[in-house]
Design a protein around this nucleic acid. Structure first.
Length: 574
DNA sequence: GCCGTTTTCGGCCCGACTGTTTTCAGTCG
């Protein structure tokens, strides 16, 4: 059981308790425990073993028992009991924007709603408006929320998909010598922001043994299909996985085929046709006699087609085939190019670790510098800083920095962009900071024209250096803000403001296509994790992947520069 | 269910927004 698994059970328990109307605050204990465990730097099982679990704030005697039960049995009785009391889809219903535990509980009591679809039907039939706290507008909002839910249903955040894939790959590799190689293909390999289902390719001579082994995987909820060299399963987390077992001779062709994207493959097949060949998942062969041409490795397949190997992130039929033919593929930025991380939080606002802890963790990743950017006062829920605290915090950051050799902690802030575009801290304070990231956290539903003006006004503030998570979207949850991105990018270019490629896997903001547009306009980019804990620093890889999907090379990303050059490349202070 | 005392039980992040009400409950972050 990973920390995330334990946290998920505790979090679901918290949500169900809230719907049940349990004693006020009890659910918060579960929520807090879930949060803590999710961000632990070491396996919770290890803490249990070393009897250190109780040292974690928010975990007391009972919670320790509960966690022990989850780790020991994989289950939690309170959780199971609650799931029996309420339909399992109640957790989905809670994800509908605008519906919380109270309203869900009322709907359950009154109408015995079992599914999201039930709720949608009641709203459509205008059956809800008589209910206490419900009106016409509520019904409309519910219908909107249901539409958003359905649009996102069945997709997973990239890090969740990657975690599931790595776990299953490790399990398959346990078969030993029978398995030569296991690779995740599909949209996960391309680094798409959300993943529908997993495609795993297994190089093995014993397909029978592999598929039997896969079906015995403890997390299989359902067998969907089983053929000679393919087995499809649904995992307990509702993710679908297709495992394909292949021979050496086909591995490269299969990797190309199953990595996709579909339009990319179509382009490749067209080229093969022009050359008198045909390309499928087994090989590149001649059309006439079916003679084998290539297929062992991806490089071999691409080469025969007159192309250099194309990085998976680019395989979206967005000009990459043409570029590969002309030898004009970019040299994409890599994780190893990153020298620093420019947005992160500490216990001063809503982060989990201290300045020193964040710095130590960043250093261990091989960085040269970071910026500590805690929230400003408008974000009250995150304990944002006012002017006085921001300055005191900056002093502490600089003191901490002085104690470190060959590593710099930059004093920064994630300052709120207020409704009218003003920044949430005064200029005198902002002028004293090294890195000012400006972000929106309120009034997210302004009319596009007003939102555009707001952002333009923020960019005009000479202290703003980086525009943080520029569109505010939350993947699978919230749509981006509506505004004129073109205008904002032009203004950023004009004023030397960098746009953020926020690497947090729920955000990935700017998204790939917009980031590419930014690059084409010559706008500077930084890739930052927005870490709220040392455990979030590794999310950098998702940001880099997104940047690669945007065709960014090292020179396009400011935080690939060593410290002195990075500081010079940022918007100059007035 | 946790925590910190007021040491044995009361409070639990809290302010803003929305849509419902007609003074506020529920939701969100």
């Amino acid at each position: 059981m990973t920390n995330r698994d334990v946290a998920r059970i505790l979090r679901e328990t918290a949500q169900l308790l809230e719907v049940e109307g349990a004693q006020i605050g009890r659910h918060r204990s579960y929520e807090r425990a879930a949060q803590q465990i999710e961000t632990l730097a070491e396996p919770v099982a290890q803490l249990v073993e070393e009897k250190r679990l109780r040292e974690v704030p928010g975990i007391g005697e009972r919670m320790e028992e509960h966690i022990g039960e989850i780790l020991g049995t994989g289950k939690f009785r309170t959780h199971q009991k609650l799931l029996k009391k309420f339909p399992p889809e109640i957790l989905d219903m809670l994800r509908l924007q605008g519906l919380g535990p109270k309203k869900i509980a009322l709907l359950w009591k009154k109408f015995k709603v079992k599914t999201v679809a039930d709720i949608a039907k009641l709203a459509r039939d205008q059956k809800l408006r008589g209910l206490a706290g419900f009106g016409e507008k509520t019904e409309q909002n519910i219908l909107k929320a249901v539409a958003a839910f359905q649009q996102f249903a069945g997709r997973f955040h990239q890090h969740k998909a990657e975690e599931a894939a790595e776990k299953l790959i490790a399990y398959i590799e346990k078969l030993g010598k029978k398995v030569e190689r296991v690779t995740a293909a599909g949209s996960l390999r391309r680094g798409r922001e959300t993943i529908g289902d997993l495609d795993l390719l297994v190089l093995s001579t014993d397909a029978e043994a592999v598929s039997r082994h896969v079906l015995a995987y403890p997390e299989v909820a359902e067998k969907l299909a089983r053929g000679e060299n393919k087995v499809s399963i649904k995992l307990t987390n509702r993710m679908q996985v297709d495992v394909r077992i292949l021979e050496k001779k086909s591995y490269g062709a299969a990797l190309v085929y199953f990595t996709g994207s579909k339009p990319h493959n179509i382009e490749l097949r067209r080229i093969a046709r022009e050359k008198g060949w045909t390309l499928n998942e087994y090989a590149l062969t001649t059309l006439k006699s079916g003679k084998w041409v290539a297929g062992r490795t991806e490089e071999e397949v691409y080469k025969k087609l007159g192309l250099v190997w194309i990085p998976p992130e680019l395989r979206e039929s967005a000009g990459e085939v043409e570029a590969a033919a002309g030898g004009r593929l970019p040299r994409l930025v890599e994780l190893a190019d990153i020298c620093g991380d420019l947005q992160m939080h500490t216990t001063e606002s809503d982060g989990k670790n201290s300045i020193e802890e964040m710095a130590a963790a960043a250093r261990a990743r091989g960085y040269e510098y970071i910026a500590i950017t805690d929230h400003s006062k408008a974000v009250t829920v995150a304990n944002g800083m006012d002017e006085k605290r921001a300055l005191a915090h900056a002093r502490r950051i600089r003191q901490a920095s002085k104690k470190l050799d060959r590593f710099r902690i930059l004093a920064g802030v994630e300052v709120d962009i207020l409704k009218d575009g003003r920044l949430d801290l005064n200029d005198e304070v902002l002028a004293q900071l090294d890195v000012v990231v400006g972000s929106i956290h309120s009034y997210m539903n302004l009319e596009p024209a007003e939102m555009t003006e707001r952002l333009l006004a923020a960019i005009e503030n000479p202290h703003l250096k980086i525009l943080g998570h520029p569109t505010g979207r939350l993947l699978l949850r919230r749509e981006p803000y509506h505004y004129d991105l073109e205008k904002i990018l032009s203004a950023c270019k004009k004023r030397g403001v960098a746009v953020e490629c926020n690497a947090f896997p729920d955000r990935l903001d700017l998204r790939d296509v917009d980031l590419r547009a930014a690059r084409e306009r010559g706008v500077k980019v930084v890739i930052s994790t927005d870490a709220h804990s040392t455990t979030h620093l590794p999310y950098m890889k998702y940001g880099v992947r997104t940047a690669r999907r945007a065709w960014l090379n090292k020179n396009d990303v400011l935080n690939t520069l060593p410290l002195d050059r990075f500081l010079k490349a940022l918007r100059p202070s007035p």
